[in-house]
C-alpha cells in the first residue's frame, strides 16, 4: 500500500493560490473555511522570501487524533488522516494540537460548539460509502476512490505541490534538488512524518464504529 503524503517544494511555489481555489471548487468549501492555504515566509526580504502551500499533512501519529476527546479520527490504509463528522463535537482541540493549522470550523466564535470540524481529506472523502452524495456533502469529493489524486496538487501551476506516495515524492524532490543544486528540507515534512522515512511505516487506525 502506498503511504500518501503531501510535499510542497518552496523552490517552486509562487503563491498563486491555485491549490486553494482548486480545493474550493472541487469540494464546494464555503467562505471562511480554508482546507488549504498558502503562507509566505519572510515577505519582502530579498533572497529569503518563500511561499508554502499547506493543508492537513496526514501526519504519522497525528496529534489531532490523539487529543480528540471523542476519538473521531482514523487513518486509512493509504495513511490519510480522516475523521467522522457525525462523531465530531466541534471542541476545537484538534486545532490546538495540529502543527499546521489544518482543522477548520464553521463558527469562529461560539457558545457551545464551533460546528463540525472540516479539513483536507486528501480528496478521499470520509467514512461514508465512497462517492455517494452523502459523502460529498459532508467531506467533499472522493478522488482517490476514482483513481485520481488531490486536485490541489494536480492543478498546481508550477508542480510545487505534490501529492502521492511518500517514497515517490521523496525521490522526485531529491532528483529536483540534485538537478538544480538548491533546496533543503521540505517544510513540515519532519514535523508531520518524523525524521527519515519514519513515517513510512505506521499502523492504520480503523474508523470508529458508529452504533
Amino acid at each position: 500500500m502506498a503511504r500518501m503524503k503531501f510535499l510542497c517544494d518552496s523552490g517552486r511555489c509562487i503563491e498563486c493560490n491555485a491549490c486553494v481555489t482548486a480545493c474550493k471548487n472541487e469540494h464546494e468549501v464555503p467562505w471562511g473555511m480554508n482546507r488549504r492555504r498558502v503562507v509566505t515566509l519572510n515577505d519582502g526580504e530579498v533572497g529569503r522570501e518563500r511561499s508554502i502551500s499547506i493543508a492537513c499533512m496526514h501526519c504519522t501519529a497525528a496529534p489531532c487524533a490523539t487529543v480528540c476527546p471523542v476519538g473521531c479520527f482514523y487513518q486509512t490504509a493509504d495513511g490519510v488522516v480522516l475523521h467522522d463528522k457525525d462523531l465530531c463535537i466541534g471542541c476545537g482541540y484538534c486545532f490546538y494540537a495540529c502543527p499546521f493549522g489544518a482543522p477548520q470550523f464553521p463558527q469562529t466564535t461560539n457558545y457551545g460548539s464551533r460546528g463540525k470540524m472540516d479539513k483536507c481529506t486528501f480528496c478521499s472523502g470520509g467514512p461514508e460509502e465512497d462517492m455517494t452524495p452523502v459523502e460529498y456533502q459532508k467531506y467533499g469529493a472522493n478522488r482517490l476512490a476514482e483513481g485520481k489524486l488531490p486536485l490541489c496538487a494536480e492543478m498546481c501551476s508550477t508542480r510545487a505541490l505534490m501529492a502521492g506516495d511518500g517514497a515517490v515524492l521523496e525521490d522526485i524532490y531529491r532528483e529536483r534538488v540534485v538537478r538544480r543544486g538548491y533546496g533543503t528540507a521540505a517544510v513540515g515534512w519532519e514535523t508531520a512524518y518524523g525524521p527519515d522515512g519514519e513515517g513510512n511505516t505506521y499502523e492504520p487506525v480503523h474508523p470508529p464504529v458508529r452504533s
Partner: peptide
C-alpha cells in the same frame, strides 16, 4: 509568515508547540 486571508491564525505555517 503572512497570508492574504483575514484569519491570521493561518499565517502560522508550522507550530511544533501543538505537539
Amino acid at each position: 509568515g503572512s497570508v492574504t486571508i483575514p484569519d491570521q491564525n493561518l499565517a502560522v505555517l508550522v507550530q511544533p508547540e501543538g505537539r
